[in-house]
Design a protein around this nucleic acid. Structure first.
Lengths: 202, 202, 202, 202
DNA sequence: CATGAATGAGCATTCATTCAT
DNA sequence: CATGAATGAATGCTCATTCAT
């Protein structure tokens, strides 16, 4: 209390998270030492432990925060309609754009699930399932209403997520196509894959 | 190759590769020590260096061999037709089945690209591009012949590869659907995504 | 001493000493970090440095205070007689009871002499020698007066001190024998060891 | 097998034990780092782990070996008689001499019990109890035969062990008294403490 | 009087690699 | 063809201590 709230400490924690996202995305969790991370932040390695009790806890915290943000963002972006084609179109567009904008966080969430302790993994897996559930629900509704044609909802959901997420593996800023164009393409592929004859608009 | 066929050495090298695939798939490249690998093989750590000059070379060799085998397998599996729909259908089915059958090798190839030295990475990346080129060619031909409708061939190729490869992330032996059924679903999703009105056969 | 009696600081210092005695007795001096000690006291680690300039100084202060208290207590407990048997009996009883009552402090003084800096050790060793001198004097007097029979006064003094102090290593509260009974036994062993035919009284 | 049995490895392990005894006796278990120990041995720190999987295992191994050697030595030294006074005399003399000769090992066993993991401690404590049982048996027999007079056998056993062991805390080579003289004194104190009018022989 | 942020040195342990045998 | 001993660098983490606030 003798100290101003929001002072150095808060800034340092943010700096750690920021540096960690970049380094881990580039070199992998096991490929980034606490020393290297500290150096990127501009502090000593010991200082990191004021903010995260272990390297593992840092990873879990980053992944948890990312998944929560992803889910929240989708809930806010989701249009207030119950037209399945509109919802699917919005989901595809949202997912692709989000994954292009937050490439590093997304990449870490995919690649480093295996670096998570058995203690931390279930929470993150559950959050991921929660997000995938959003797509599954849209597909199920579309099938129920007869506007989507798909042989198997769960497999299709996984297939579409994989397809949309894949944008992170090849897309680089300044490429041939802008983010808008890329999102358009993925959205159309998605709708076509389930036989939804929808018009795709920005 | 300079080695007498059938000698002890050949057997040991195969045992190393086999153990390495399993361990690296499970724990990641950085998560497997040479000691642990040696233990799984049943030799001393020093022995590994008789077969691979460095841990890095072992990884590169494994990935190279895997990519070559993947490409060869496709070339052998590819039907002798120039009907784009038939080719795309065959490619989708082949890719999904191959990825289900050789889950560990495939997983390593995806996850451990980043563990590759700058010296070794380009070769593997080139092989991967070569494989992706097969799909791109099929798509381009289909578009040219007017049987596929897709807004952008390169992006669609990447999207489809990601979708098909995604099967490795969720499918586990003994699940609800058999490999045949899963391959059917993915094949149909693929054809639909490019608007090919094709019949899917076993 | 320069501190206002009854102020917060005095209380904090006492709390530090108290917590330190318990923790160091249980985990050893090197096994207790300043953070852990601070936590037990309910302050931040930095605060400890307001009361003791270093961890080493804290240890030295604790040991010094303990030895002074031990010596003072004996001087107050010592009967006003010059009957060697009565004095030896009183010493044995005092020592055993004191060591049972202040097990933690005593334990630390024995175990942690080696953790003391070369700068601090001599003072504590001297205090200990001073205390042992009390026993030596009693023994010497008893031998001079012909009531004790012992082959060597200094060795006997060390032997008896070790024997009496040993009570701390096995005795636990609520055991088979009460403190009174234990003190009786040790006192009698002491007197017998030097051939003093003395009656042992409470 | 390609390597001579009893070669470097055996020598190195012995060197580690030897250096460890000396360093731990002088600085305490927690006060000796693996680096410092390695330096004393003349190897790199990592090498120590070829011989002991953890620092803790090294300690446990040392203590176990010491206790076994102590018990074995006493069993070999124990005279083939059932005269309690002769046995007690022999035990006192043996214990004092052994403790003077192997001061470091003995000291570690006393001081570092608390550094032992909960997993390792019971074994060592049991060995110690086994040794103490030897003295208890002698005392009980002497009391049964009416040649010892003592108020309580278990307490007396602990008291005598503490007294005899105490020699390690003050005795230094080249002191006023030789080992023989010191052993004589302790033996006589021991016999007197239990009222055994025995002749003490070399 | 006390906090909270940070340091820099140190710790136990693991690792890829080398090499005499 | 393989071993077993050793290296030297690195890793995650802890610690006593400092000091601006």
């Amino acid at each position: 209390m003798a100290r101003t709230a929001g002072s150095e400490g808060t800034k340092t924690e943010a700096a750690i998270r920021e540096a960690a996202v970049e380094l881990i995305a580039r070199h992998g969790f096991e490929g980034v030492s606490m020393r290297r991370l500290a150096e990127a932040v501009g502090v000593q390695a010991g200082t990191l432990y004021r903010y995260f009790p272990t390297k593992q806890a840092l990873l879990a915290s980053m992944m948890r925060e990312h998944m929560r943000h992803l889910i929240d963002s989708w809930r806010r972006a989701r249009p207030a309609t119950d037209d399945p084609a509109a919802l699917l179109s919005a989901f595809a567009r949202f997912h692709v754009r989000y994954h292009m904008d937050r490439r590093d966080e997304v990449f870490i969430n995919y690649m480093e699930l295996r670096s998570l302790d058995p203690e931390n993994a279930p929470e993150i897996v559950a959050l991921r399932k929660e997000y995938e559930g959003e797509l599954r629900a849209i597909l199920a509704q579309g099938v129920a209403k007869g506007v989507f044609r798909t042989p198997d909802v769960p497999v299709t959901a996984m297939a579409l997520i994989a397809m949309l997420t894949g944008v992170t593996t090849w897309r680089q800023a300044g490429g041939r196509l802008g983010p808008q164009a890329i999102a358009d393409i993925y959205t159309r592929l998605t709708l076509d894959a389930v036989g939804a004859r929808a018009s795709v608009e920005a």
